[in-house]
């Protein structure tokens, strides 16, 4: 605990004198603040992307995990009979919780995004769809296919798994990519602060020499740089986070029609996540400057 407090002392004990011993450097200040703001803005977007991907993957998994479809393509005269036969087979199949044929209206609604409203579905050779809900145990798909082949030759069983799995995997990868991006942004912020702090320490070698001559400890000298960079990054990250938050807020809300692209907004308590970004950036800046200061002061000893 003592070590932690000692480590954090440059932040906990504000010393106006220590803050003033390092000469002001306007251009570097602006660059550090700008870079921190940009990094925080990107972090908010990466966070939104990652959370949205997670939600999407979960949604696809939940919705499609226990459902499948039978598509019946048959001449118009045989469509009703084959549908009837397929439904009969399904009611006798262990592992099928329920099965029902979609109405014309439901099929029309499914096709509407592609063909537009008012599609005369009864005049088109559209296959009949049967929606199947599975029990927790599931059914034997190979056995069901064989029976369907015998009873309703125009029926094709689609388990959804074929296209569901890669989609869920893609959503998982996208989520991972979002978190990796956040890690990279965090590391880049640390690298940027380290470079800026190193440059500042090197440029202020004479200041350090004077401070040492008058009895300043390494902790005192480091605190002058650490506080300065931590506060700069905190301010920059706060500005960037607010900008990112507003940008996410302005994104259209999620809808079935929009799908993934309109679902980037945070949902529920996830709106609190961006609040973590400025303190996280400040912590990274604090650790990076502290390490840089200790290293440079050791080299200058």
């Amino acid at each position: 605990m003592k070590r932690i407090l000692e480590f954090l002392s440059p932040l906990l004990h504000a010393d106006a004198g220590a803050d003033r011993v390092v000469p002001p450097s306007g251009f570097t200040v602006r660059l550090t603040v700008f870079t921190s703001a940009a990094m925080a803005f990107l972090t908010v977007f990466a966070l939104a992307l990652s959370l949205a991907s997670g939600r999407l993957g979960q949604s696809w998994g939940d919705e499609l995990a226990r459902s499948s479809t039978i598509r019946i393509s048959a001449p118009a005269g045989q469509m009703a009979a084959q549908t009837e036969a397929a439904l009969k087979v399904l009611t006798q199949t262990p592992g099928v919780a329920s099965a029902r044929a979609l109405s014309d209206e439901e099929q029309q609604a499914l096709l509407e995004p592609w063909f537009g409203p008012g599609l005369p579905i009864d005049q088109l050779p559209v296959p009949q769809l049967i929606d199947i809900s599975e029990t927790a145990e599931g059914y034997d798909s190979d056995g069901l296919r064989l029976r369907l082949q015998a009873e309703a030759p125009g029926a094709v069983l689609d388990e959804h798994a074929r296209w569901r799995k890669p989609l869920v995997a893609a959503a998982g990868r996208l989520k991972l990519l979002g978190w990796v991006s956040i890690l990279l942004i965090t590391a880049t912020t640390g690298a940027m602060v380290t470079l800026a702090a190193n440059a500042s320490l090197a440029a202020n070698a004479q200041v350090i020499e004077v401070l040492r001559l008058v009895g300043a400890t390494d902790g005192y000298i480091a605190s002058a740089f650490v506080r300065r960079y931590t506060l700069r990054v905190l301010v920059g990250a706060a500005v960037g986070t607010v900008a990112g938050f507003v940008a996410i807020l302005l994104m259209p809300g999620g809808s079935d029609a929009g799908g993934f692209l309109t679902g980037l907004r945070f949902q529920g308590w996830h709106w609190l996540w961006p609040a973590v970004v400025p303190p996280l950036a400040a912590m990274v800046a604090f650790a990076a400057t502290q390490a840089a200061a200790r290293r440079v002061l050791g080299e200058l000893a």
């Binding site: 004198g17 003033r20 011993v21 004077v210 005192y220």
Partner: peptide, 18 residues
């Protein structure tokens, strides 16, 4: 050597500050 950006009285008082 002094801290050139600080006025003289702050430079002289520097040992007190540190």
């Amino acid at each position: 050597k002094f801290l050139d950006h600080l006025p003289l009285n702050e430079n002289i008082a520097l040992p007190l500050s540190v």
